[in-house]
Each structure stands twice: as C-alpha cells, then as structure tokens.
C-alpha cells in the first residue's frame, strides 16, 4: 500500500480540519446534569427513622424485660421495689385538682410524639440536602 506523501498528508489534514468538531445540541450540558440530578434523587433511598442499632437496642430491652419476667415471675425484682419506694416518697395527690379533657390528652400525646420525631426528621432532610 502506497504511503501518503507529506504534501498529501498535509492536504488531507487541512481538509479534515475544515470540518472541525461536531457540536451537540445547545441543551446538552443541561440534559446531562438533569439526568445526574434525577439519578441522585433515585439513589437516595429514604432512611428509616429508627436505625438498625436503634431496633437492636429496642429488641435487647424487650428481650431483657421478657427474660426477667420469665425467670423471676413471682419473687419480684429489687429494681422495681426501689421504684415503688421512690414512688411512695413522692408527694401524693399533687395534681388532683387539675382536670384535663381526653381531647387535650390526645393532643398533648400527639404533640409529644411529633416533637420526639422532629430531630430524626431534621437529620434525614439534612442528609438528603447534602447528597443533592
């Protein structure tokens, strides 16, 4: 096969240079970034409010309580007795005069639950924002 002479090579290069680089659509970069952002949202799966460690702790406490009741059913436990003693020392009838309706109790309970969740929710939202 003949080798191209330097002049032929030069003309070929000039002809190819005339064409230059091809341009993609004007929205090319935007499209790429949109796909990346969409994928990032898909990848960030919602984290559970109670982590695996949290669940392990709950199960451990529950199992501990169950085993205590199983192994010491009638004898009672020293710790509970201490609690009873402390309760006895607490002034009795302190809140006798206060009457709260059931609706208020539910409302306060729900508010309490919400406030309990709030730090976890904030942590979750912050994590997702950082990933974006």
């Amino acid at each position: 096969m003949d080798k191209l002479s330097s002049k032929e090579e030069d003309r070929l290069k000039r002809a190819i240079d005339e064409v230059g680089l091809e341009k993609p659509s004007k929205m090319f970069t935007t499209n790429v970034l949109n796909v990346i952002q969409r994928k990032m949202v898909e990848y960030s799966q919602p984290a559970p409010l109670i982590s695996k460690k949290g669940w392990a702790l709950v199960i451990f406490i529950f199992a501990g309580c169950c085993s205590l009741f199983l192994f010491y059913p009638n004898e009672g436990i020293q710790w509970f007795r201490t609690l009873e003693q402390l309760n006895a020392q607490f002034p009795q009838g302190l809140f006798d005069g206060i009457k709260i309706s059931k609706t208020a109790v539910f409302a306060i309970s729900l508010m309490g639950l919400f406030l309990l969740q709030l730090p976890f929710l904030l942590q979750l939202v912050n994590k997702q924002r950082n990933m974006e």
């Binding site: 090319f28 970034l33 952002q37």
Partner: peptide, 16 residues
Amino acid sequence: LQAFASLVEKYQEYVF
C-alpha cells in the same frame, strides 16, 4: 455539580 458542568462544557464537542 457546577464543576462537573464545566468539564462537560469543555469536552462535549470532542466526545460528541
């Protein structure tokens, strides 16, 4: 992500 956008802008014509 804007830094990556700069990389895309820089190389998009070559890649395309």
